[in-house]
Amino acid sequence: MEEKIKNAIADNKHATNVEGKKKSPLWGDLEGLLQHKIDNKTKPLGSLGVLEEIALQVGLVQNTLSPKIENPAHLVFAADHGLADEGISPYPKDVTWQMVMNFCAGGASINVFCRQNEMELKVFDVGVDYDFSENLPVVNAKIARGTCNMRKEPAMTIGECRAAMEVGCKAVRVEVAKGCNTVACGEMGIGNTSSSSLLMHKFTGHPIEDCTGRGSGLGDKQLDRKTRILKEISEKYDPQSAEEVLTTFGGLEIAAMTGAYLEAKKQNMIILIDGFISTAALLTAIQFDASVKENCIFCHSSDEKGHKLMLEFLGVKPLLQLGMRLGEGGGAAVALPLVKSAVNFLNEMSSMEDAGVSNKE
């Protein structure tokens, strides 16, 4: 059966959908074959629930009845935000570089989860207002020493935004060359929930009040002030294209994540999506290429206000609801074993025929 699929793919390499975009030549046939394989495992129909949906999705993305999760990588992009000078976070800007140092020392939650789940972790300095030693395990990809204060001027120039996106693209290509087919992205940047709220507001049309949350722990008065500032900023500019929106309101690390998602789709990888900021970057990537969503597994629902609305806007359901709102991409790393379980049952669980078990009549 697998050989039949490979031969058909070879005969239909140039198949396209009605819009002229590349599409799996066997999407319909392969979907039926995968569903048959899933349904004929030694279990009642549908009894593995969401794991069956993941198995089907991963098989379709990889165009195979025997999908694999190989050398999964977690890319954390760090950068500072000029808007942090307006006091929109309870933490000072220095926490950005201090947390990067914590990543280097292996002491952050994302270090713990990546070690536990055998996921390679890489940290990128895309725009931290600090000079890291060359001896530290940090990839130096600094575009600028943080973004500008959006209350006064756009966050980035077009050139800076494009350069940051290329950092993400290159990071993914490096992992692909090492045999990675599954990637997640995380971030570190004091003030980046504000950028994410503005991107969500512009791309979904939700009022800024519904897009703005407490971030790393704002009190009620601080949240009201943050919301007022973001509303002022949203009304100050009128960017037209997706690139202009990202340049005006985004962050260097968010632009890098956006580029990483676009490249991961181009490389036909499985993309594990984390919480609020990661989803804001994905929402941005979708403005450039809507098909990115096909490769994405949405790992959890963040406790940050706005994330649930973003997931509803995208029409997706998260795997986990753990009340997390930490950032760093932790929810994606925590969910990786579930994705592996889905692939493993599809490849290793006996079929009814193999096990000699009577199927449902």
Rank of each mutant, 00 (worst) to 15 (best):
residue 9 I to S: 03
residue 322 L to Q: 08
residue 36 H to K: 13
residue 245 V to F: 01
residue 240 Q to R: 13
residue 39 D to Q: 06
residue 153 E to Y: 03
residue 27 W to L: 14
residue 166 E to A: 04
residue 188 M to V: 04
residue 354 D to L: 04
residue 231 K to F: 00
residue 185 C to E: 01
residue 126 V to G: 05
residue 75 L to C: 03
residue 38 I to R: 09
residue 7 N to Q: 14
residue 119 M to T: 14
residue 234 S to R: 12
residue 40 N to Q: 11
residue 155 A to I: 02
residue 283 L to G: 05
residue 139 V to L: 01
residue 270 I to R: 00
residue 153 E to M: 10
residue 134 E to A: 09
residue 163 A to G: 02
residue 160 E to G: 11
residue 344 N to P: 05
residue 15 A to G: 00
residue 134 E to C: 00
residue 175 E to A: 12
residue 20 G to F: 10
residue 173 R to Y: 01
residue 204 T to H: 07
residue 119 M to F: 02
residue 15 A to F: 15
residue 298 F to M: 07
residue 185 C to A: 11
residue 204 T to S: 07
residue 62 Q to R: 03
residue 127 G to C: 09
residue 349 M to F: 12
residue 94 D to I: 12
residue 94 D to G: 14
residue 11 D to W: 00
residue 281 A to H: 05
residue 22 K to D: 05
residue 92 P to C: 11
residue 150 M to R: 08
residue 276 F to E: 01
residue 67 P to W: 05
residue 15 A to Y: 14
residue 230 L to I: 07
residue 179 G to F: 06
residue 283 L to R: 04
residue 134 E to W: 00
residue 81 H to A: 05
residue 304 E to V: 06
residue 346 L to T: 08
residue 324 M to Y: 10
residue 18 V to L: 09
residue 127 G to W: 08
residue 64 T to D: 13
residue 335 A to D: 08
residue 343 V to G: 06
residue 359 N to A: 13
residue 226 K to D: 05
residue 238 D to L: 09
residue 128 V to D: 10
residue 13 K to H: 05
residue 336 L to D: 12
residue 351 S to K: 01
residue 133 S to A: 11
residue 315 G to E: 07
residue 326 L to V: 08
residue 80 D to I: 02
residue 74 H to R: 02
residue 148 C to F: 09
residue 67 P to Q: 04
residue 335 A to Y: 04
residue 71 N to D: 01
residue 236 K to Y: 05
residue 83 L to A: 12
residue 131 D to E: 15
residue 323 G to W: 11
residue 53 E to L: 12
residue 39 D to Y: 02
residue 356 G to E: 02
residue 195 S to E: 08
residue 56 L to R: 10
residue 102 N to A: 14
residue 359 N to V: 12
residue 293 K to L: 15
residue 87 G to M: 04
residue 247 T to H: 01
residue 84 A to M: 13
residue 29 D to H: 09
residue 361 E to Q: 06
residue 349 M to G: 09
residue 92 P to Y: 09
residue 322 L to P: 05
residue 166 E to D: 10
residue 30 L to I: 13
residue 20 G to C: 11
residue 295 N to W: 07
residue 29 D to N: 08
residue 7 N to I: 07
residue 19 E to F: 14
residue 198 L to H: 09
residue 187 E to P: 11
residue 169 C to N: 14
residue 130 Y to T: 07
residue 305 K to F: 01
residue 145 R to G: 11
residue 90 P to C: 06
residue 119 M to K: 07
residue 50 V to D: 06
residue 4 K to M: 15
residue 193 T to K: 10
residue 36 H to V: 01
residue 298 F to H: 07
residue 93 K to A: 15
residue 221 K to N: 12
residue 229 I to D: 07
residue 95 V to Q: 04
residue 132 F to T: 13
residue 155 A to P: 00
residue 18 V to N: 00
residue 232 E to T: 12
residue 318 P to G: 10
residue 114 C to E: 03
residue 270 I to Q: 01
residue 109 S to G: 15
residue 341 S to E: 11
residue 281 A to W: 02
residue 129 D to K: 15
residue 266 K to Q: 13
residue 30 L to V: 13
residue 316 V to Q: 11
residue 111 N to C: 12
residue 35 Q to E: 15
residue 22 K to P: 04
residue 200 M to R: 02
residue 236 K to T: 15
residue 97 W to D: 13
residue 319 L to F: 14
residue 177 A to E: 14
residue 46 G to A: 02
residue 35 Q to G: 02
residue 332 A to G: 05
residue 267 Q to I: 08
residue 310 M to G: 08
residue 211 C to Y: 04
